[in-house]
Design a protein around this nucleic acid. Structure first.
Lengths: 159, 159
DNA sequence: CGCAATCGAATTGTGCACAATATAAATTAT
DNA sequence: ATAATTTATATTGTGCACAATTCGATTGCG
């Protein structure tokens, strides 16, 4: 009966551990979807998807950069970025040009329309802040915790 | 010059607000990807993707449930779940059967292999906990904050 | 110098994620 | 009971996301 009790306790601990890890990862996963759904109607007006919006945000801070650079800033690879960037080029928000110095790299630059879209995009953040129903301070604190977690996870991936 | 100063200040505030909201949503978005990448090698051994793993976790807690139920628990719709569940059925982890009481609903039940996979899955959470490099308490606190944020976002979507 | 190794993008194939639509079954209203 | 509406799932089309592979350009090493 002792050994049986121990077995039952071990199973319970494993179950709870599994449940815990799931809850945290699932919390992040489902919150990302929730954000996406809140952003969607706002970004529809700009003609952007959320990943495209992220790319534009990155480019508004610094453009004329290689695809590789964008990928490192956004944690995305060329398999994701290449078709996305082609769609942004088709929408005439960016221009893709091969570097003359190194023919392997493709430089991404904003068009005048791409720059102009920044003004319209300024309406977006207030709506999100309102939807989150948090103070700026609370969100900043959460962000720092989440980023710290992300960076530890990414550190494990880099061995 | 006064009016110009005001304009400049307004622009700076808008820029910062936009940057802030971006950082929080992007933090969640990029952390979800980081989790996915950490899970992948572990779940490969089980023959599951991360969304499939979430479905299995939900079913291990309660199965013989309609697709609708799963969708509500995971915040996913039938367009996502139907093909995913068909793949799990092809892998012989679940069985999909029309309810006899209400022919509209499809009930999802675990097969014996589906139940059995639970034992192998218990190896997963420890690795994730180790990768996160956090204490259980820290992760629980973060989870609660993130879930609270998610629920507020979802509340806005439901009007 | 020449050639292997590396590098940056692009391509291919699989699997979500969701909007919009379709369809069949059940419920409600008339 | 028949029509209109609602409900649960399935289908279609678009757009990520990433592993694996390919390809041309560049770098390094002997």
């Amino acid at each position: 009966m002792d050994s049986m009790t121990i077995m039952v306790r071990k199973q319970t601990a494993a179950d709870q551990a599994l449940r815990l890890d799931n809850q945290i990862c699932f919390a992040v996963y489902s919150t990302a979807h929730a954000f996406n759904r809140v952003y969607k109607p706002l970004l529809d007006r700009l003609g952007l998807t959320y990943p495209q919006y992220l790319v534009m945000l990155a480019l508004w801070e610094r453009d004329d950069v290689p695809v590789k650079d964008l990928g490192e800033r956004l944690f995305l690879d060329s398999g994701t970025l290449t078709p996305l960037l082609k769609r942004l080029e088709a929408a005439e928000l960016i221009k893709r040009t091969r570097s003359t110095e190194d023919e392997r790299v493709v430089l991404i630059a904003l068009t005048s329309q791409g720059h102009a879209l920044r003004e319209k995009a300024k309406a977006v953040p207030q709506s999100i802040l309102a939807a989150s129903d948090c103070t700026v301070g609370e969100l900043l604190a959460m962000k720092d915790e989440i980023v710290a977690l992300r960076d530890r996870l990414n550190a494990v991936l880099g061995e």
